[in-house]
Amino acid sequence: MTRPFLKMHGLGNDFVVFDARRAPLALTAAQVRAIANRHTGVGCDQLIVIEGSDRADARMRIWNADGGEVEACGNASRCVAQVIGANAVIETAGGVIEGTATADGASIDMGAPRFGWDEIPIAYAMDTLHMPVGWESLENPVAVNVGNPHAVFFVPDTDAVALDRLGPIIEHDALFPARINVNVASIVSRAHIRLRVWERGAGLTRACGTGACATAVAAMRRGLVDRAVTVTLPGGDLSIAWRNDNHIVMTGPATTAFTGEIDLEAYA
């Protein structure tokens, strides 16, 4: 038996999406890794399964390319909102979010960020606005949980950071019991941030929606930018606003690249 899927992306952060609201789907970590493989599978940064939910319009489950299931993905949330259509309430492991589909993407209410050291989580208590830690040139990060955990480093030039080398070192540091997404950001103006992201379980990515949200909020907490900014990633721009009700709203594109069918048993 084959299953239909969508190949979608948000600014180049790409997904294999299965709509399992009517026909339940169980996948193993090995199957996820095989499907995500860019040489012998379909290829993707994350695999998404849309399921039924008794507390929302749908439940979104997310697996990184390494086969690990994670709590949240901002770019995938926009894609799922496009699939569901109109105004969608989406249950995730990181909480319930709301999305409004647009002509070429979606606007997502990502909920309220969390800043407690135990909410990130961090292995022991510390100030999360000015963390007294560093890895070579990357120092003094901000920690934010926006459904998944992020460390944000502000640097003069994002391209000058060897993120492909330092990213996995920081991701797997014992300081972060659930591992961490690593963001390096440069402030362009009060309304503009440049960002590169090492994504937990996926590696360097062209775009990371939750990373853009976490970085914008981190910069706002430090007084570096205003409450609405454009975040430029290698794949393009996202608009991030931190509203007065403490909720983060992310707006950006979501694109269907192609549709297909896959024999899941071939990837068992």
Rank of each mutant, 00 (worst) to 15 (best):
R194Q: 14
A202N: 06
R55K: 15
R190G: 14
H9Q: 13
W198T: 02
R61D: 06
R165C: 01
D118L: 02
H130P: 00
L233Q: 10
G10F: 01
R190P: 08
R179M: 10
A218V: 01
P149N: 05
M220T: 08
V155T: 07
P156G: 11
D263H: 08
A112C: 07
W117K: 09
R165N: 10
R114F: 01
A216I: 07
V184Y: 05
A257T: 15
P132C: 11
A257I: 15
P121T: 07
A30L: 13
A218D: 09
I187M: 09
A36W: 03
N75V: 10
G236M: 04
E98T: 15
A178T: 10
A191Q: 13
R21P: 09
A174M: 14
M131W: 13
N140L: 08
E98L: 12
A30W: 12
G99M: 07
T259D: 14
A214Y: 08
A58N: 12
D14L: 05
N75A: 07
V32P: 03
A103I: 11
V155L: 11
G95H: 03
E199T: 06
A143V: 03
G52D: 14
A202F: 12
G223A: 13
R78P: 08
G41C: 05
W117T: 10
I122H: 00
L11E: 06
G43P: 00
A103Q: 15
G111L: 05
A191V: 13
T92E: 12
G236W: 12
P253Y: 01
I248K: 00
R55V: 15
P234D: 04
H247Y: 01
R243C: 15
N37V: 05
G43F: 09
N244P: 12
A254I: 04
I193M: 04
G10Y: 05
A218S: 04
H130W: 09
E261T: 14
D157L: 11
V89L: 12
S189Q: 08
D66N: 07
A23C: 11
T255V: 15
L175P: 12
P24M: 08
V231S: 01
H150R: 03
L224E: 06
T251G: 06
G147V: 02
L138A: 03
I50S: 02
T256F: 02
A101P: 11
A185Q: 07
G167R: 01
C73I: 05
I90Y: 06
L129V: 10
F5Q: 03
L138R: 04
H150N: 05
N148R: 05
D245Y: 02
T215V: 08
A216C: 11
R38W: 05
V184T: 12
V49E: 00
R190Y: 15
P141S: 01
R200N: 13
D57S: 10
G260I: 04
D159I: 02
A162S: 15
L175K: 12
M250N: 13
A86M: 11
V49S: 01
I108M: 10
H247C: 14
H39D: 04
S107G: 09
H130N: 11
F176E: 03
T40I: 04
L11P: 01
E98W: 14
L233M: 14
A214V: 11
W63A: 11
L195K: 05
